[in-house]
Write a protein that binds this DNA or RNA. Structure first.
Lengths: 163, 163
DNA sequence: ACTGTTTAGTTCAATATTCAAGTACTAGCA
DNA sequence: TGCTAGTACTTGAATATTGAACTAAACAGT
């Protein structure tokens, strides 16, 4: 924008880190999608929605909470939940407390799906991410991710805060 | 798959790391896209293609090399390069050496676009990723990414190997 | 030289995502 | 009560991505 200010270019070390990290951001979601799609017929995003519901009290959550948890906007969530509902894994009902809200509930069949799917998914996450790392690196990954997350969202410090 | 084998669940520490890392994988690309789109009217992927060409000798690269560099398949690259060509930033020509290949070349105008766009993008990468990290964490990020990358692609150890 | 196989790239149809309205409801206030 | 503003969600059109089929060129074996 302003050519009079010399940009602070990345150092060679940073460039290398950035290149590798971008690679991971491009490939890892695709790899997880592949595993989930092949073994269980769901996308990574769909799995996150099902998992998010399975952990919630009463296996029920408001759509907006779920959107926050799944790091997505409402329109996308609405489409995906619609598909999951058609497959019998989720059920939507109006919130008796507030008529504007919609509650999404995981059905029995949906819970079973999560139970069937989780082990394979965890195994994939382990083999692609945690097994190649030392324990110290796993801790660093957590710290690094949290710092980057804070830089992206200055306001929301805690993802999945359901209050 | 086989319920007789108890899956090795993630520890609490690993779960926390995983949740934060997934958040970064979902949000960071979106944040970079937003900055590039707003300030320069290109997507992150388009920028990677332009940048990949700008670094290549003669500002020219074979489509397949470029696809490897940009971590994408050929169909997607073909579409995107088509768009970039329409905007006058890239030019395609048949490879005289091998009639099957197509060479993509960055035009003068495309180079100028990269030069205009790069500072803002680097600034965004810095402020979202490297500024919040210590120097040691940047190095860890590099090492961690490389290990994960190797786990995803057992075969291709070196991204962007153009030989 | 001729045929079958592999590689490089494009195109087209199916699917998914995003952005911009639109609907239904709640809440504040005169 | 009736009026305005704001929230939660859904829907639909425009765009992008993916996967499968297709074209063209190179190579290997005869």
């Amino acid at each position: 924008m302003d050519p009079s200010v010399e940009p602070r270019w990345l150092s060679a070390e940073e460039q290398q880190a950035w290149l590798a990290f971008v690679g991971v951001m491009m490939r890892l979601p695709a790899a997880l999608d592949t595993q989930l799609q092949r073994d269980s017929g769901v996308s990574h995003f769909e799995y996150m929605v099902l998992a998010g519901l399975s952990e919630a009290p009463g296996r029920t959550r408001r759509m907006s909470d779920l959107a926050g948890f799944a790091e997505s906007g409402l329109p996308r969530l609405s489409q995906v939940v619609g598909r999951l509902e058609k497959r019998g894994w989720v059920r939507r009902s109006p919130d008796p407390t507030d008529g504007r809200s919609t509650l999404a509930t995981l059905t029995e069949s949906g819970l079973q799906k999560v139970v069937e799917t989780a082990p394979g998914h965890v195994e994939a996450v382990r083999s692609l991410v945690f097994d190649p790392l030392t324990r110290a690196q796993s801790r660093q990954l957590s710290e690094i991710s949290q710092r980057v997350m804070r830089a992206i969202h200055p306001e929301t410090g805690c993802p999945g805060s359901n209050d």
